[in-house]
């Protein structure tokens, strides 16, 4: 199955999932704006990476997954993380390095997760998470669990890695219920698509792996909910790996240190540069699925949650190097302690 132009057939979403997705998108956008402001104020160690422009895609994936599924989000998946069940405190604690967070100051920013709850924390090496999700799915199969889906995301740049190829091929050979979402946001840091791949469209690669491919315009929440929802459902019902290639424009730098001056104005003004959050907001008003007053109330509620989380975490202790257990093994008696 290959959806060449899903927007033609994408049905309008029902109000409830659309509004719910919008609220996750809004919360993600506003949290990231807060994180960017903390970064500019020197309150965050290391980088801040925004998912601006990718929220519709990410939220749609998080919403299509269920408790018990596996999700390995990548760097621009705050909205999907929320939809999959991430507590806002996990995000803020990891960015601020609180020792009470899931990573306890050992890891920062987007490198967070709760593997026991199905949310695998990414390593920085692009493509690496795909085979890890495959292994998680193999384990579920060994245990006789059915109806489980494993999903992960990657950018256009990550599709050039050997890991991407090895893992997608492995998933295909093992017919795993993997959903791989490629967010083609046109740039891998500063490198444009033209220097990343030479095929017409990344979705064409699906045929090479013998798996289903789907295309989606990620500026449209309707299309994202529809295409991602259908792909996840196909994986869940035994149709093997699903590759989704979404087109969008990154509406921010690679990280907040990057002014993205290499993105031409023409591209920003094109249909690709539309802001999915604003588009969804207009749709809510046009379809009378929400009033202006409701939108304001949702925004206020999101801001309140963010302020509360940040205020809470800012009062929390930083990790103490003297109290740190400097041991990388879970079998401490096997630690080689010479030189400690």
């Amino acid at each position: 199955m290959l959806d060449t132009d899903p927007r033609v057939s994408a049905p309008l979403s029902a109000r409830e999932p659309f509004a719910q997705a919008y609220r996750w998108m809004l919360l993600a956008r506003l949290l990231e704006e807060k994180l960017a402001s903390l970064y500019r104020g020197g309150k965050i160690h290391g980088g801040v990476f925004l998912g601006k422009g990718q929220e519709a895609l990410s939220a749609s994936l998080g919403m299509a997954l269920r408790k018990g599924d596996i999700f390995a989000p990548l760097i621009r998946d705050q909205a999907g993380r929320f939809a999959f069940g991430e507590d806002i405190l996990d995000a803020v604690r990891t960015y601020l390095g609180s020792k009470l967070g899931p990573m306890r100051g050992r890891e920062g920013n987007v490198h967070r997760g709760r593997p026991r709850e199905g949310c695998y924390p990414m390593i920085s090496h692009l493509g690496a998470m795909i085979s890890v999700v495959c292994g998680g799915l193999m384990a579920r199969r060994f245990k006789g669990e059915t109806g489980v889906v494993g999903a992960t995301c990657i950018g256009d740049g990550g599709t050039s890695t050997g890991s991407f190829h090895e893992a997608l091929n492995l998933a295909a050979v093992e017919k795993l219920p993997l959903v791989l979402v490629v967010a083609n946001n046109q740039f891998a840091y500063s490198t444009p698509n033209s220097k990343q791949f030479a095929c017409n469209d990344l979705v064409d690669r699906a045929a090479g792996y013998g798996i289903d491919g789907h295309k989606v315009d990620a500026t449209e929440l309707d299309a994202c909910l529809d295409v991602v929802g259908r792909a996840v459902e196909r994986a869940r019902t035994g149709h093997g790996p699903q590759l989704i290639v979404a087109t969008l424009l990154r509406l921010a730098g690679h990280g907040e240190h990057d002014d993205a001056s290499y993105i031409e104005a023409e591209l920003k003004e094109s249909a690709l540069g539309r802001d999915c959050l604003r588009e969804a907001e207009c749709a809510l008003l046009e379809r009378q699925w929400a009033s202006a007053a409701e939108l304001d109330a949702w925004r206020e509620e999101a801001l309140r949650q963010i302020e509360e989380a940040v205020a809470t975490v800012q009062r929390e202790p930083a990790p103490d190097p003297n109290a740190e257990n400097w041991c990388a093994l879970s079998t401490p008696h096997l630690d080689d302690t010479f030189g400690h």
């Binding site: 695998y120 690496a128 085979s131 292994g135 492995l170």
Partner: peptide, 12 residues
């Protein structure tokens, strides 16, 4: 790469 990666996921 994928063999070891898959083992990590299965171990999780």
């Amino acid at each position: 790469d994928a063999m070891v990666g898959s083992a990590i996921g299965a171990a999780i």
